[in-house]
C-alpha cells in the first residue's frame, strides 16, 4: 500500500456533553490517490468523520493525521489547512446564490494570495473541464441541480487540494445527474491523482469507489485495509 494521506486511530467524538457518541473509536487509513466511500445509515457518524478529516471539527480523543498535519493536537483555526489541502463538496446550498458560477469557483482563492489573473484562468479551465464553460456567468438559481454540483466540484479543485471531501454530493440529484457527477468525480480523481473521500448512505453510490468503509453507530464494521 502506498503512502497514507489519512491516518486515524481510536477517534472519539461526542456531542451534547458526551451524551451522544458520534464516533466511538474509529481507526482507519486512506492511501494517497485512493477513492474511498464512507457508507452508513444516518446517525452512523459518517459526516462527523468527514468533518474531522476536513479539519472542520476536532476529535475528543484519538490520533488523526491528514496530509501530514496532526489534526488531533493542533490549536487554533485550521482555515489555512482547509484552503490549501482540502476541497469540500456538500449536498445542498453549496454555492453562494448571489455570485456567478465562476465567482463561486474563485471564492477559495481569495484566502490564498494568488494572482487574480492566474486564478481566473484556472477557474475557466476547471469550468470547461466540468462542461460549464458556457454557463460561467450564470448564477446558481439559473443552473440545474447537477450543474450546481459540477460548479462545486470545480470550486473544490481550484486550490489544487490533496484531498476532496464530498458529503452526499449526489443526495439531492436525480439518477441521471447523479451518474454524471459521480463519473466526473471519478475521472478527476484518476486524472489528477487526488484522494477522494465520499460520504453516502446509498450503497449504490458507494459502489463507485475503490473501497468502501462502512460505519455503524460510530464504529467501522467493514475491513479497514483493502
Amino acid at each position: 500500500m502506498s503512502e497514507s494521506i489519512v491516518v486515524a486511530r481510536d477517534l472519539v467524538k461526542t456531542y451534547e456533553n458526551g451524551r451522544t457518541r458520534a464516533l466511538d473509536g474509529v481507526t482507519l487509513e486512506i492511501a494517497r490517490g485512493e477513492f474511498v466511500a464512507i457508507c452508513g445509515p444516518s446517525g452512523s457518524g459518517k459526516s462527523t468523520l468527514l468533518n474531522l478529516i476536513g479539519a472542520l471539527d476536532k476529535p475528543d480523543s484519538g490520533e488523526l493525521w491528514v496530509a501530514g498535519e496532526d489534526l488531533a493536537h493542533s490549536h487554533g483555526d485550521l482555515a489555512g489547512f482547509r484552503a490549501r489541502k482540502v476541497g469540500f463538496i456538500f449536498q445542498l446550498h453549496n454555492l453562494i446564490p448571489s455570485l456567478t458560477a465562476i465567482e463561486n469557483v474563485l471564492i477559495p482563492t481569495l484566502e490564498l494570495n494568488h494572482s487574480r489573473r492566474e486564478a481566473k484562468a484556472r477557474a475557466r479551465e476547471l469550468l470547461e473541464r466540468v462542461a460549464l464553460a458556457d454557463k460561467a456567468h450564470r448564477r446558481p438559481p439559473e443552473l440545474s441541480g447537477g450543474e450546481r454540483q459540477r460548479v462545486a466540484v470545480a470550486r473544490a479543485l481550484i486550490n489544487n487540494p490533496e484531498l476532496i471531501l464530498a458529503d452526499e454530493p449526489t443526495g439531492s440529484l436525480d439518477s441521471k445527474n447523479e451518474k454524471q457527477v459521480l463519473d466526473l468525480l471519478r475521472e478527476l480523481q484518476a486524472e489528477r491523482g487526488v484522494t477522494l473521500i465520499l460520504v453516502t448512505h446509498d450503497p449504490r453510490v458507494a459502489q463507485n469507489a475503490d473501497r468502501v468503509i462502512e460505519l455503524l453507530d460510530g464504529r467501522v464494521i467493514a475491513p479497514v485495509a483493502s
Binding site: A79, G80, R82, A83, R84, F90, I107, E111
Partner: peptide, 8 residues
C-alpha cells in the same frame, strides 16, 4: 461554506 473552503 466560506469557512469550510478555507476562509480564516
Amino acid at each position: 461554506i466560506l469557512r469550510a473552503v478555507g476562509w480564516r
